[in-house]
């Protein structure tokens, strides 16, 4: 399938989703749907680096926080529209990805993973000590009740924005998969030494993957302050973002763009149900156990069951 046709299909799927949401017409549906869509963006972004090149990023909360806190700053200083804030948050987050990658990717892959893990702790320290964005007390964002020019509730607007970001992320991931860039990524994943020896510019490709992956995570994080209306470091840097974002592609299957979507929809929905019916701690425990179970028993994820 050619890319424009694929994007058309994505838009049709998104339109159907939004139509369904309008039909249900329940505010909770938008709140829950937003979270699932956010995880589609996050896990697709993670998979661009993790699934395609094989480098594991544990610092997901740091990238989300760059997006979210840049929105807080812009909200306090300017009156930019949300879409512009998302673009800025994404750009800053992409820079963070390239920077971290540049410092650690010339070494063994595990150093990159460890550095991302530690980076999340340091970003949390920085934000906690940054009074302008509320420090450890957190920041309040008052969101408008409605969006005038579209005539819809603000939560519907956020849902639409996240739907748009999902299309953007998934279309990019699929385009990469089918392109020269994607083949370059795959050579790094399969045998980096051989790739380097055959003239593949591995460091450059890895930095591109880091930038794209970080950028999309930042974009997913940018609308977060408007969604939660109260943003504090402890919940922004919660480990559950990281574990969910890693578990979803690994459970769905890391080899293709479809895996992260499958994982995000299944696990995201399961979590929403478990949070409401049991408790949020138990729903997190379920994600952790599923992650460990899948990496041991089904290394190719759900997609692996349908492939020979």
């Amino acid at each position: 399938m050619k890319n424009p046709l694929f994007i058309l299909w994505l838009i049709v799927a998104a339109a159907l989703t939004f139509g369904l949401a309008r039909l249900v017409d329940n505010a909770y549906f938008y709140f829950a749907g937003y979270v699932v869509l956010q995880y589609i963006v996050l896990s697709t972004a993670w998979n661009i680096l993790g699934g395609y090149t094989g480098y594991v990023n544990f610092g997901i909360p740091a990238f989300i926080a760059v997006g979210a806190y840049s929105t807080v700053v812009l909200h306090k200083t300017t009156s930019l529209p949300l879409v512009a804030m998302i673009a800025i948050g994404g750009a800053l987050s992409a820079l963070l990805g390239v920077g971290t990658g540049y410092l650690t990717l010339r070494l063994r892959g595990t150093f990159f993973s460890i550095a991302t893990l530690a980076m999340a702790v340091v970003m949390q320290t920085l934000v906690t000590n940054w009074d302008f964005v509320g420090g450890s007390r957190g920041a309040y964002i008052i969101r408008p009740a409605t969006v005038q020019y579209l005539g819809i509730n603000y939560i519907e607007y956020l849902f639409l924005i996240m739907l748009g970001l999902s299309i953007f992320a998934v279309a990019t991931a699929r385009a990469i998969e089918k392109s020269r860039l994607g083949f370059g990524f795959a050579t790094i994943r399969d045998d980096e030494l051989a790739a380097e020896a055959s003239g593949v510019p591995t460091l450059k490709l890895k930095l591109i993957a880091c930038g794209l992956s970080g950028g999309f995570m930042g974009m997913a994080g940018s609308p977060l302050p408007y969604y939660v209306t109260y943003l504090d470091p402890a919940s922004t840097f919660s480990l559950s973002y990281a574990v969910n974002t890693i578990a979803m592609p690994l459970i769905g299957g890391t080899s293709s763009w479809l895996g992260p979507i499958l994982g995000a929809i299944l696990l995201g929905t399961l979590q929403q149900v478990a949070t409401v019916t049991i408790s949020s701690a138990v729903s997190l425990l379920i994600v952790g156990v599923l992650l460990v179970f899948f990496v041991i028993v089904a290394p190719k994820g759900i997609l692996g069951w349908f492939q020979k």
């Binding site: 594991v56 690994l250 290394p299």
Partner: peptide, 8 residues
């Protein structure tokens, strides 16, 4: 060990 081992 890289991707799934770390995730484990």
């Amino acid at each position: 060990t890289a991707l799934r081992g770390l995730s484990f």
